[in-house]
């Protein structure tokens, strides 16, 4: 008697789940929810009946609770910071800057094991000019400036429609006992089309949220991207003797 009674209650709860899911919601949401409540939700309830009537009742109750929770005010679906944005640098007075903290243990340990160091700058579109951008890196050991262009393209993706890396080898000595490095990128001349520098999100804990900034010719803007937690896609790469990357740093 009890299982049959519980079975009826499970069926009632199943009907209630459907009502809770679709009533007073935009019709598109009602259709989408309704489809999956019937296909997956009802299926789970029916299937759990094979284990026993009480399990079936518990399953129905859990799904009802979740359906109710889905309607309650709670966390909104928020868009994450963009992993892939660009900023056009069209004038020689404009400047992108990223500061690297070099005091963390992970950096020091990897630097001690590294054989080569390089700087990667991501730009969208193929830089067909050999002197597309000027990259400067400065630490307390000195400053290195290099003109970077098409022949420095690195990796798979530098294409007209997609960002790609441009690589600049750096002498390892520049980082010896350095606590910070500052990289600036500017156009070496007025380009057609203008240079589009890539930006992404900044995830690693401990990174200064203001590590990247942009000089528009008149003022510094921080942060440069469309939302917070963003940075220029400018990274230091440390590699071992076999050329394998042992640390990608920003």
């Amino acid at each position: 008697m009890i299982p049959r009674h519980i079975g009826r209650m499970s069926a009632g709860i199943a009907a209630l789940i459907l009502v809770v899911a679709i009533v007073d919601t935009p019709w598109e949401t009602a259709v989408a929810r309704g489809f999956f409540v019937v296909s997956i939700g009802f299926g789970l309830i029916a299937g759990s009946g094979l284990i026993g009537a009480r399990t079936q009742f518990a399953t129905a109750f859990v799904i009802l609770t979740l359906a109710v929770a889905q309607r309650l005010p709670g966390q909104a679906v928020s868009n994450p910071p963009s992993p892939n944005w660009t900023r056009t640098i069209s004038d020689t007075s404009e400047l992108a800057e990223h500061r690297f903290s070099l005091t963390e243990t992970a950096w020091k340990a990897a630097l001690s094991k590294s054989a080569t160091t390089s700087l990667l700058v991501c730009a969208e579109a193929v830089l067909d000019q050999p002197d597309a951008m000027t990259v400067t890196i400065a630490t307390n050991n000195g400053t290195v400036t290099r003109v970077v262009g098409a022949e420095d393209a690195h990796g798979a993706h530098p294409r007209p429609d997609r960002g790609g890396f441009y690589r600049m080898p750096i002498q390892r000595d520049l980082f010896d006992r350095a606590g910070e490095a500052t990289v600036t990128v500017s156009t070496s001349k007025t380009l057609t089309p203008p240079l589009r520098l890539c930006g992404t999100h900044s995830i690693r804990p401990g990174v200064d949220p203001n590590a990247s900034r942009f000089f528009s010719g008149t003022e510094w803007i921080t942060p440069p991207g469309p939302t917070s937690h963003t940075r220029w896609l400018i990274e230091l790469r440390l590699a071992d003797q076999r050329g394998r990357t042992i640390l990608a740093w920003y």
Binding site: T29, F36, Q70, G74, Q75, V77
Partner: peptide, 29 residues
């Protein structure tokens, strides 16, 4: 779409919507 916050927009994973519906049950809390 499942939490009634956005309109229906086509995406890369339309065929896997059952998985997203399951996750959407837990999204609010």
């Amino acid at each position: 779409l499942f939490t009634a916050e956005r309109p229906s927009l086509s995406g890369e994973f339309d065929r896997r919507a059952g998985h997203v519906w399951l996750a959407s049950l837990l999204q609010r809390p």
